[in-house]
């Protein structure tokens, strides 16, 4: 049985696409058959983050309009044989697809995949409505900032009203040094305010920028963010994994610098 998960946030730039790429890749590493769908028509990005931008021939709108078969539009990731991407159209806009068409498209994929991940555009308009129409559950991504949390709260309300049966929270871009100083809300503050289940917390990690530059998701690598994303994948499968201690210093030099910072 397949599960359709929408990754959404309301606010832009909080890490939806990065999360989709890493969670999708992580689930594929766990031997699940995964398809990633970029639903951001007009502003496609999941393809570059995945490093698959040069292999696009057809896109989501082509499939919906019947210009090609689904198989022709799906890009198989050569690094993971059970991971595919359905890219979005770059030269169209959100109104090119309706929620009903999205549901039909998703249903046609259910048979072939264990997990269907939808990268949702920012905002709460047509693009958002398209993305959540066929979703069974949602991952709401936020950062510990007032604007992102406010938008996340609105999104959580809308997801509930649209009968998405399970909504979990990912707190992204945590800076433990700032949290320690009291200059950033901590994980508990955010979950208190939003009152939904936390499925993972991702530290602000330079490696994310580097991996995006290279077009290679970092899930499963040895850095903190890579481990945090891998943990989220295990939790999606229903495993009980304790929250990562985000304060682990990655190297000795970090510890060394820290001793001096405190004084």
């Amino acid at each position: 049985m397949s599960e359709v998960i929408v990754i959404t946030s309301g606010k832009g730039g909080v890490g939806k696409t990065t999360t989709t790429a890493n969670v999708g890749t992580g689930l594929a590493q766990l031997d699940k058959k995964v398809v990633l769908i970029d639903t951001d028509i007009g502003l496609r990005n999941l393809d570059v983050v995945m490093g698959l931008e040069n292999r696009i021939v057809y896109n989501l709108v082509d499939v919906v309009e019947g210009n090609c078969r689904m198989k022709q539009a799906l890009i198989k990731d050569k690094r993971y044989p059970n991971l595919s991407l359905l890219p979005s159209a770059q030269t169209r806009d959100k109104s090119a697809v309706s929620p009903g068409q999205m549901v039909k498209l998703i249903d046609s994929l259910r048979e072939d995949f264990d997990y269907i991940l939808l990268d949702c555009p920012a905002g709460i308009e047509q693009g958002f409505k398209n993305a959540i129409a066929g979703a069974d559950r949602a991952l709401v991504v936020t950062t510990p900032e007032v604007s992102a949390i406010r938008d996340a709260d609105r999104i959580i309300g809308l997801l509930g009203a649209n009968e998405v049966r399970q909504t979990d929270l990912i707190v992204n871009r945590l800076r433990m040094d700032m949290v320690k100083r009291g200059d950033m809300m901590n994980i508990n503050d955010v979950t208190d305010i939003l009152a939904i289940n936390l499925i993972g917390a991702i530290p602000d990690d330079e490696q994310i920028v580097i991996s995006t530059n290279q077009g290679e998701p970092l899930v499963g690598t040895d850095c903190l963010a890579g481990k945090a994303f891998a943990n989220i994948c295990h939790r999606i499968l229903g495993e009980n994994v304790p929250l990562l201690d985000l304060e682990i210093k990655s190297n000795l030099w970090g510890k060394f610098k820290d001793i001096f910072k405190k004084n």
Binding site: I149, M178, G182, M184, M185, N186, D189
Partner: peptide
Amino acid sequence: SSGTIAKDRL
């Protein structure tokens, strides 16, 4: 602290 201010405002 600014973190507490943020939480209260939210």
